[in-house]
Amino acid sequence: MKRYFLGVFLALPLSAQAATPEQRGFQVYRQVCSTCHSLNHVTFADLSGIGLAVPDIKAYAASRQVPDGLDDDGDPKTRAAHPSDPIGSPYPNEAMARLANHGDLPPDFSRLAMTEEGGARRIETILRSYAPKPSDVVLAPGSYYNTAFAQNHIGMPPPLHDGQVTYADGTKATIPQMSHDVGAFLDWVAHPHREARSHTGLVVLIYLAGLGTLLALLKRRVWKRVKETRQ
């Protein structure tokens, strides 16, 4: 977290609209990852947690269609998403998702930085570890060369290439930069209340430390009477 704060600090004087890594990571998610990966438990409105403005949230939600029951003829209807809807999946169901991905299911992102061993760092490493396939390596269709894995392959085609997104804050969108930003975004997605958690924790601990000091003084005073009768 500290690292990110520092990043924000350093970037501030450089650009009026400097974005945080989480915000840039969201931009990458929206333009790149979200074509395959869902965010089933995160709502559009939750994005205010990384400082996204309300109009932007509304516009993002409105750009997505979600199922809305059946119409009078019994045909499925859709409507534009509300900010309170989950960001959800690009696919209507799991079967379609598998069909589009050689039978694999692109994992949901809501807790990926938690369930993936190594967390956001690991995700960042995977994204940066695509390389041209050496000529002596044979890969099954739907497998891509990636040195982050023991077997050197992954089922996801290389999602990023240099300059793929145009960052609003002018940061150069290199693969390492985008990988890092996506990692930061996914880290926040998996631990959305981390800041509130440590703030609350600090206040609670300071309060208890104060209370504890007073209780220690009180206890010592009370027990002095017994100590005096001790032989």
């Binding site: 958690r197 924790g201 600090l202 601990l205 206890k219 009370v222 027990w223 017994v226």
Partner: peptide, 30 residues
Amino acid sequence: VPFHPYYTTKDGLGLCLFLMVYAALIFFAP
């Protein structure tokens, strides 16, 4: 010794420390 004030203060102090460990756990090492 009578429970109060001797063990009310001793339990109180202990509880405060117990809650501090509890808080450290849930806020900083969830």
